[in-house]
Structure formats: C-alpha cells, structure tokens
C-alpha cells in the first residue's frame, strides 16, 4: 500500500459561497493594477524606452536563427552530409548535394560541400537540432531573432546568404588536422627492414 489517503477538511459555508476567493482575488488584482498605474512596476517602466526603439541585449547561449559558418581560412565547413536536413523537425532545411560530377570542396581533404543549402526561416523553429547533430560544427544557432521579409521566397535563405550572415567560426578545423596528420604520416620515418 503506497497510497495514502489524506482527508480534506470540508469547506465551510462561507468558503463554498466563493466570496473569500473573490475578495482575495480583487485584492491581488487591485494591488497589481495600482502598482502598474503608479509606474512602480519594473515591467511597465517606460524610462528606458521600449523594444522596437531600444533592442534588448541578447544573452549568451541564446538560440536564434541557424546560420552556416566558415572556418578561420574562409572555407565552407559544411560537407553536405545532410544530417541536419534529416533531423530538422519542421523540415526547414533543404540541401542540394553536389552529385558525382559536382563541385569539390573548397578545401583540401574534405570530400564535398553542398551545391545549395537552403533554410526556410518561416518553417524554422530555432530548436537547435541541426547544430546538435552537425559533425562538422558547420551550423550554429546565432543571435538573430527578428527575421523579416516581404515575401515567402525572401524568407528562404540560401547558402550564400547563410554563410555571409554566419561569419567565421573559431572552433576546430577537422579536415585541416586530418590533412596535417596525413601529410605527417607521409614524412614519418617508417623502418623498412
């Protein structure tokens, strides 16, 4: 027996008449009303200005719009693996892979890069799954939260736009290190008997 029955104290007639609840409710709402009306409420304090004129400071770790990033040498980090496209819950990401005869990656050792990378910002829910799943650290949720456009087409951001908005990422350069280690292996003195 893990259930414990707790006896409720029956409500008095006064309590059942709803009156005490109504009176205390009126008191609480009146207090909030008067505080706001007097301007003592920090939430309704107008002295610092308001959002569209005075934008708020975006906190560190805020999950805004996802953009593609370049590495320190200006190469596209994305290798068109399409993991983000598959995981994207609202199906906002659409990647066109280069195909067998497509353009190779713009950096050494990486096999490929996307021919086109589109994020439909009208669908995107800023969940961060793409960033979570990316093995290349190529896509990051950044600090933009207020994206506007005059048409649906305008809200579909292509690769060029995403890269230019994303900027440079100072993280690891996986393929550069791979290349270095491969080159290192070639010059490594291997004993031959």
């Amino acid at each position: 027996m893990s259930t414990k029955v707790v006896d409720r104290t029956p409500l008095t007639f006064y309590e059942r008449s709803y009156l005490p609840a109504i009176l205390s409710g009126l008191k609480v709402t009146a207090r909030h009303f008067l505080r706001s009306a007097k301007g003592h409420n920090t939430a309704t304090d107008l002295s610092q200005g308001y959002y569209p004129e005075v934008p708020w400071t975006v906190a560190e770790g805020y999950r805004g719009a996802p953009y593609l990033v370049r590495d320190q040498e200006g190469h596209t980090k994305c290798v068109s693996c399409q993991l983000c496209e598959f995981i994207c819950p609202p199906k906002a990401i659409k990647i066109t892979p280069p195909g067998p005869e497509g353009i190779p990656s713009d950096r050494a050792n990486a096999e490929k890069m996307p021919r086109e990378f589109e994020i439909n910002m009208l669908r995107c829910i800023f969940c961060g799954m793409c960033q979570e799943v990316c093995p290349e650290e190529a896509i990051f949720l950044q600090k933009d939260y207020s994206l506007t456009g005059t048409s649906r087409e305008e809200m579909i951001y292509n690769k060029e736009k995403l890269l230019s908005l994303g900027g440079t990422h100072a993280g690891i350069q996986k393929w550069k290190h791979k290349l270095e280690s491969a080159q290192h292996q070639e010059v490594f003195p291997v004993k031959t008997h």
Binding site: F33, S36, A43, T44
Partner: peptide, 13 residues
Amino acid sequence: KVSAWIQDRVGPN
C-alpha cells in the same frame, strides 16, 4: 489598459 496593468503589462501606448 486595466487588463494590462493587472497583468503587469503596458497596454496600448
């Protein structure tokens, strides 16, 4: 306006 003030909002301004 009253609802805004009761709920600690600003209301039409």
